[in-house]
Design a protein around this nucleic acid. Structure first.
Lengths: 340, 340
DNA sequence: AACGGCTTTGCATACGTATGAAAGGCGAAG
DNA sequence: CTTCGCCTTTCATACGTATGCAAAGCCGTT
C-alpha cells in the first residue's frame, strides 16, 4: 500500500489539461490533437497511469468480463476449453471470470447470481444446467448466455454443441461394420444432453445396422464410476460378455480400458473394442490409442465467442443454436479384430 | 436489454427509506433496525435487487477479484489447481479472473498490466515468471502476489512450492536402491525453478548413492518434445541405454513411457524404470501406474490462499515462502526389476 | 418532564471514469 | 476584418455504491 493510486486527474494536472482530455486519449474512437496527445502520453508514462477498468465499467455499462461456469475440470476436454476460450476472449479485449459449480442445480442458481453481481457482459455455461427461470432473469438483465457443449429445452438459449447424435451414430455403424455383435454402452450423467444425444444416436445407428444394444450401464462421467460399470458389464460368463463398448466420453473410456486390460486381462481390440467421444489428448497417446469422435474445441470456442459477442453488441436475433460436425477418428482400440 | 438495472435507489424509494439504509442492509457488519431491514428485504426481493459489485469496488477499493496467471493447462496438474483455487476462493467471497499467458516474459508483463487494470486484490502467478521490475510495480500498487509452484530470486515475492529438491533426491535414492545403474534425466523447461530444483535434488541424490547422471535430455514440459527426448536417449545400442529415467513431470513421463513401450518395445519396469513428478490423476491409472512424487494440490492451494488473504488484509510482514513436503509414491513403473 | 446515552437514519460526498453540451480556437472564405 | 464552420477542449454531470457526520429517534433514569 506504499503508493497512491494514480488517476486520470493526476495525469491531467501534470499534463496541464483537463481530465476529459485524458479520458478521451485513452478511449479508442475519440480524437485529441497531436500536441495534447503527446503531453498526456508523457505524463501518463511518467506516473505509470492506466485507466481503471472498473470505474470505466460503471459508466459505460460494459465490464468486458465474461463469466464462465464450469462444473469440473477432471474431464480433460474442459481445461482445453478454458484455455482456448480465455485466449480468444483476451484477444478481443475480454477476460474470463471463472465460477466452479457443482452439478447440483441450486448451486448453479447461486453461482449465476454471483456472476450477475459482477456485471458480466456475457455468460458461458460449460458444464451445468440452468433453470429456465434463471435463464429468463439473465435475459432480462440483458446478459447473453451461451450454453457450451450442452442443450436445453428452452428455445431462448443459444447453444454450441457438436453433433452428438451424429457422432453416436457413426460409432455404432463403425462397430457394427467391424464385426461386433454384442455391443454395450456406458452412459454419462443422465441429466446431460450430451449423454442423451450420444446414446440416442448410438441406438439409432445400431438400429440401422440391424442390431440392438446388448447391455448398458452408467458411469456418470467419472473415472471411478466408469471402472465400476465396466466390472459389472463384464461380470458375466465369457460368451455373454460384450465384444464392444461405447463409453460416453473419452475420460470414462480410459477407465474402462484400464479395467479390461489390467483387471480382466482382456485385449483391446482383440477381445473387446472400446470407443469414446471427445478426442481429448490422451486418446491419441499410444497407451490408449482410442477410437473416438473428434470435437473441435477450436471451432466450438470460436462459435461460442462469435455468438456471445454478437449478442453483446446488440444483436437481438433469436437464440442461435450451432451444431458442429464431429469426425470419426479410428484408432487402435477398435480395429477390426473379428472379421465376419 | 429489456429490463432496466435496478439500483439501491430504486429499492430505497420502494421501501420508503434512504439509499444509505439500503446500502447498510447489504453491507455486512453494519446495523439497521429490524423494521427497516424487513421493508428493505421485501422491496429488494420484489425488484430482484443485488448490489453492483463493481460500483462497490470503486468506493471500497476492494474488488474481491483475484487474478490468476497460468501459461498452459496441458499439464493436468494445473486444471486441478484452477478448480481447487477457484473453489476455495469462492468460499471466501473472492473470484478468479483467468489470464492465459504464453511462456514469453514480455507477454507476462503485458498480461500483468491487464490484470492490474481490473483492480484485482491479489495475483496468483502459476506458470510464468515475472520480471523483478514488474513485481515491484505490483508491490507498489499494493497488490500482493503469490508465486505458485515456482520460485524466483526476488526475495520480496511470496511463493508456495513443494519440496522439489527433496523430491528429486528421494527419486534418485529410490532408483539407486532398486538396483538401477544407468540413470538418465529428462528436463523440463530450463527457465523453470521446478526444473532446476528437481534436477538439483536428483543429482544430489545420485551423488549420495555414489552414482553420476548417465544421460540427460530436455523435454520442455511438452508431451511431443519429451517423446523426442526419449527417442534420442534410447537411440544408443542396447548396452549403453539407460535403465532408468526420471522425467521432470508426470505429463512428460507418460510420453516417455509411451515411446519406450510402443516404439522401442521395452518393458517398464523390466527394461527401464520410469519415474515422474506431480502425481496427476493419470499417474495412478493402471496404464501408466507411475512412480512419482505427490504434490498435494490441496495443501498448496490452501497455503496460497492463506498467504494471499493475509497480505490482502494488510499483513505487511515480509514475503512468505512456503515449501511443502512431497511424498514418494512407489508404483509399478519402478518396481525392483533387477535385484542386485 | 427533562435529561443523557445509545442506536438508527438521512444527507452529502466521494470513488475514477465517460460523455453530452457548451465554449474556445483556428483557418478559410467572403 | 468579419463571419462561418469545424475541430479541440473544458465543464458539468452521471454511473451505483459506501461512509463520516449530524440530526433524529428511542428508552430508561432522575
Amino acid at each position: 500500500m506504499v503508493s497512491e493510486k494514480v488517476t486520470s486527474n493526476d495525469v491531467a494536472r501534470l499534463a496541464g489539461v483537463s481530465q476529459s482530455a485524458v479520458s478521451r486519449f485513452f478511449t479508442p474512437g475519440t480524437s485529441v490533437s497531436k500536441r495534447t496527445a503527446e503531453k498526456i502520453k508523457a505524463a501518463a508514462d511518467e506516473l505509470g497511469y492506466r485507466p481503471n477498468v472498473l470505474a470505466r465499467s460503471l459508466i459505460t455499462g460494459k465490464s468486458r468480463i465474461i463469466g464462465l461456469v464450469v462444473a469440473y475440470l477432471e474431464n480433460y476436454f474442459y481445461p482445453d476449453v478454458v484455455e482456448r476460450l480465455s485466449r480468444l476472449l483476451q484477444d478481443k479485449g475480454y477476460h474470463v471470470l471463472v465460477f466452479i459449480s457443482s452439478l447440483a442445480a441450486d448451486k448453479v442458481e447461486e453461482i449465476t447470481q454471483e456472476i450477475l453481481d459482477y456485471q458480466v457482459d456475457g455468460i458461458v455455461l460449460a458444464s451445468a444446467n440452468m433453470s429456465s427461470e434463471l435463464a429468463a432473469r439473465c435475459h432480462a438483465s440483458g446478459v447473453p448466455i451461451v450454453l457450451f457443449n450442452r442443450l436445453q429445452d428452452d428455445e431462448k438459449l443459444s447453444a454450441v454443441t457438436s453433433d452428438n447424435r451424429g457422432g453416436g451414430r457413426m460409432l455404432a455403424l463403425h462397430l457394427a461394420e467391424t464385426g461386433r455383435r454384442r455391443i454395450a454402452y456406458i452412459a454419462g450423467f443422465e441429466g446431460a444432453s450430451t449423454q442423451r444425444d450420444r446414446e440416442r444416436g448410438f441406438r439409432e445407428g445400431l438400429d440401422e445396422a440391424g442390431q440392438a444394444l446388448f447391455a448398458r450401464d452408467v458411469g456418470n462421467f467419472r473415472y471411478e464410476e466408469a471402472q465400476a460399470a465396466a466390472r459389472r458389464l463384464f461380470a458375466a460368463p465369457e460368451a455373454e460378455r460384450p465384444d464392444a463398448v461405447f463409453v460416453c466420453n473419452d475420460h470414462m473410456a480410459f477407465a474402462v480400458m484400464d479395467v479390461l486390460r489390467f483387471e480382466l486381462n482382456l485385449t483391446i481390440p482383440g477381445d473387446v473394442a472400446v470407443v469414446g467421444f471427445d478426442d481429448v489428448p490422451p486418446a491419441r497417446w499410444p497407451s490408449y490409442n482410442l477410437t473416438t469422435i473428434r470435437q473441435s474445441v477450436d471451432d466450438m470456442v470460436a462459435e461460442t465467442v462469435a455468438t456471445l459477442l454478437s449478442a453483446i453488441e446488440g444483436d437481438v436475433s433469436p437464440a442461435r443454436r450451432v451444431c458442429l460436425p464431429g469426425a470419426l477418428v479410428v484408432r487402435g482400440s477398435s480395429q477390426p479384430a473379428k472379421p465376419i
